[in-house]
Design a protein around this nucleic acid. Structure first.
Lengths: 236, 236
DNA sequence: CGCGGCTTTGATGTTCATCAAGTAAAGTGG
DNA sequence: CCACTTTACTTGATGAACATCAAAGCCGCG
């Protein structure tokens, strides 16, 4: 939220009407209305591990990801609980914003991330005026919360190894669309995501490597035997 | 959903404009619009353990609780995972309905329950026409999903005894508003809610009883030492 | 170059699931 | 309504799963 994160629209070549993300929420917003929103928008740029949204902060903006990758989490005491990892189109900051005046979760950047921020007031006004926009937005909210809840249930019904396998497949299928990728999170963060200890996350990864299910080079992961990994995820 | 569950409006003295639940969603709906909805409404009555919504069913109605108590859960294989326990005003069936054509969760009655069912089409039409209604509905959706997610996180960060203590306090504070109440769920259901084994839920309850934190007579629970129970919930 | 955080492995102990066996309660069909 | 069956509840014993502690190597960063 610091001023230093602001980048002016003309620093990024971006015309709202041509934005890939337009159809997410603004597919049914006329060009005139769109122009009003467009003129008000602010981009913010965050580098890895910078905090985008801080639990407890006043909600004044409607924030969505233009590029990058973020984690949604909650802090209690000195511990963090990761709720979800989201990429553009996964509009996580949509949670809470219509019921609370303050954010219930924090969001931070896992890699360099750019957000597009609109004034919450403008969004509220548009909901009142434009029913189709309201309807589209509702669908998005419902999708996001459904996905998060179902994902938490999927994790929760598995044991340690099943959870780790599930997370690896999640990165492969949902985030990177590839069998090899660089982990955007630490082992500790995986642990905070699946509610297990860091050591046991590492032990599971090592075991998968020994069993030739995956290859590991530091943060770099390659899924070698997808069938086995899926089996571990299903049975665990 | 069976026809046998339908009860005609005049069997229950109910005028929509005077309904306690009106302000939940329809606080900003005019009397004329309200009348249209009102004429279309159907009540359904369910007895304990009857299924109100079945995972996978087509979503055609907008369902909310008039009275009773329900559990929201998901079935995988032969096991159930309880997501949330809800009473009237906690409008759980709001989840999924704007993003999916089918229900992602099941809902069943924990005690005799009456639902008020509106046509989904009418709700959609009203969202398009009435911006304030859309806005109110969004706030409710956001509240419900926030509450469920935060609750799951609270459970997940605790250990066995902490979870059991948390659930007991949940019943006392959120459901019954009393330090003594009849458990509306079995030990097994508590286990499915907090992802622990039935035996260990029972052992925790027995231990609380031995330590004179609670009294137990079958399904009947009395919280004797609230401070201790809160301590267990906090530290566990 | 040194410090702190991340990663890794091993050893140990705690927490929890599972199995077993018995009692109580609740539903079912004659 | 009773005998019967099933489901819920309870406790103990055992072993598996997982956390914690400890120690050492590694990496990035000021």
């Amino acid at each position: 939220m610091e001023e230093t994160n602001i980048i002016l629209p003309d620093q990024i070549k971006c015309i709202c009407t041509q934005c890939d993300l337009k159809k997410l929420f603004f597919g049914n917003v006329g060009n005139l209305e769109m122009q009003l929103i467009c003129d008000q928008k602010i981009f913010r740029k965050y580098s890895k591990s910078q905090i985008i949204i801080h639990e407890g902060d006043e909600i004044q903006e409607f924030t969505y990801l233009k590029s990058g990758l973020v984690k949604l989490y909650r802090t209690s005491g000195d511990k963090e609980q990761i709720i979800h990892i989201a990429k553009p189109f996964d509009f996580v900051s949509i949670l809470s914003i219509f019921s609370n005046s303050k954010y219930q979760y924090s969001v931070s950047a896992l890699k360099d991330t750019v957000t597009c921020n609109l004034k919450m007031d403008d969004i509220h006004k548009m909901i009142l005026k434009n029913g189709t926009f309201a309807s589209d937005l509702m669908r998005r909210m419902s999708e996001v919360s459904d996905r998060i809840i179902l994902e938490m249930l999927e994790v929760r019904k598995r044991n340690l190894k099943g959870r780790v396998a599930f997370i690896l497949l999640y990165f492969a299928d949902e985030i990177f669309n590839s069998m090899s990728f660089d982990l955007p999170v630490s082992r500790k963060e995986i642990a905070e995501w699946i509610s297990m200890s860091t050591e046991n996350v590492i032990r599971s990864l090592s075991e998968f490597r020994q069993d030739k299910v995956i290859k590991i080079f530091g943060k770099s992961i390659e899924i070698v035997n997808r069938e086995d990994l899926e089996m571990i995820s299903r049975l665990g």
